[in-house]
Design a protein around this nucleic acid. Structure first.
Length: 310
DNA sequence: CGTAGACCCTGCGCGC
DNA sequence: TGCGCGCAGGGTCTAC
């Protein structure tokens, strides 16, 4: 379901409702995800206050501290910087309750079919509801994942970068340090098709199957072209295309093909702006007269215009 | 080391 | 209606 834009949209939708709330109880209903859920570790969140929501690659990070802050103190604290300013330069480290153990972060990955929604605490369990986080405010953060490719675990905030899920990850495409030079540099010595390269999380994170096709269309690069045969200047164009397509998708609430929704159940509408993904046989939107083609690269459907993309 | 392919799992839409 | 098939937004592991 989610690539970077969808996770970012989810993060933004949940930030205001969640920051300042507190985990009361963690219910593990079905521990069978890609990595089995660890009940005792997840229950360490109980009693902790949600300080901040972050995103790294396609992971949603819920930072918590042990000390309870009254909700009114956080009433307008939607900007994480200001939250940090109020609590001190190192929010988590200042927590009395966290001083011994360090801050704890709930790490969530939605895999292909994961959904995270905020419901009333008493809302009935639904199919595939693996996890329920009951909150002091009387609500419940519900995690459902029919295909079970998702991940949920708790780790110390301070050591997240060294965690095996994160340590190999490449550059964030919306950060200032992402550009064509980075791509060109990482492409040296490689021969993979550029689409495979773009979807490699140790190169650049967050670009999944939809946005890889879309970015390559915008950059007019053929998805099968080997990265060994891409001119330096075209990497600049590609980096810009990646940045733009992800940014546009975030602005439009993400892509809802089947069932993506933000934390409050709102669908995205970037699907109507997709140029090539899922449009096999349709006319190229650039008006070149050609039709969009579907091919398979590394077992994933790939869409492109055979005339515009070289 | 880089690359290609299999695999994990359930649900949906399609053609018959 | 029912059934089998192919396909689906992710990541990891293995063999070469």
């Amino acid at each position: 379901m989610p690539e970077l834009p969808e996770v970012e949209v989810l993060r933004r939708s949940l930030e205001r409702p969640l920051v300042g709330d507190r985990f009361d109880a963690v219910q593990v209903h079905f521990p069978t995800l890609r990595e089995p859920l660890c009940g005792p570790a997840l229950r360490r969140l109980q009693g902790r206050t949600i300080r901040r929501l972050r995103r790294r690659a396609k992971y949603l990070l819920v930072d918590t501290g042990g000390e309870h802050l009254p909700r009114r103190d956080l009433a307008d604290a939607t900007d994480p910087i200001r939250v940090a300013g109020r609590a001190g330069p190192d929010v988590v480290g200042k927590d009395r309750g966290a001083a011994a153990s360090g801050g704890l972060t709930l790490v969530l990955h939605l895999g292909m079919s994961g959904r995270l929604t905020l419901v009333e605490r008493t809302a009935p369990l639904v199919d595939h509801e693996h996890l329920g986080f009951e909150l002091a405010s009387g609500r419940r953060l519900r995690f459902c994942d029919p295909r079970r490719f998702g991940v949920a675990f708790v780790a110390s905030t301070e050591s997240l970068d060294r965690d095996r899920h994160f340590r190999h990850l490449g550059v964030e495409p919306l950060s200032a340090s992402f550009d064509g030079a980075v791509l060109a540099d990482l492409a040296r010595g490689r021969t993979a098709p550029v689409k495979t390269f773009l979807m490699n999380a140790s190169v650049v994170v967050g670009v999944g199957n939809i946005y890889a096709s879309e970015a390559l269309y915008r950059a007019r690069i053929h998805p099968r072209r080997s990265v060994a045969r891409i001119a330096h200047r075209r990497f600049d164009v590609l980096a810009e295309a990646v940045r733009e397509v992800l940014g546009d998708a975030i602005e439009q609430g993400g892509t809802t093909l089947n069932d993506f929704a933000d934390g409050e159940g709102n669908s995205g509408y970037f699907q109507v702006s997709l140029d090539v993904y899922g449009r096999e046989g349709e006319a190229c939107p650039a008006g070149c007269g050609s039709r969009i083609r579907r091919i398979v690269i590394s077992n994933r459907s790939t869409y492109y215009c055979p005339r515009c993309q070289r």
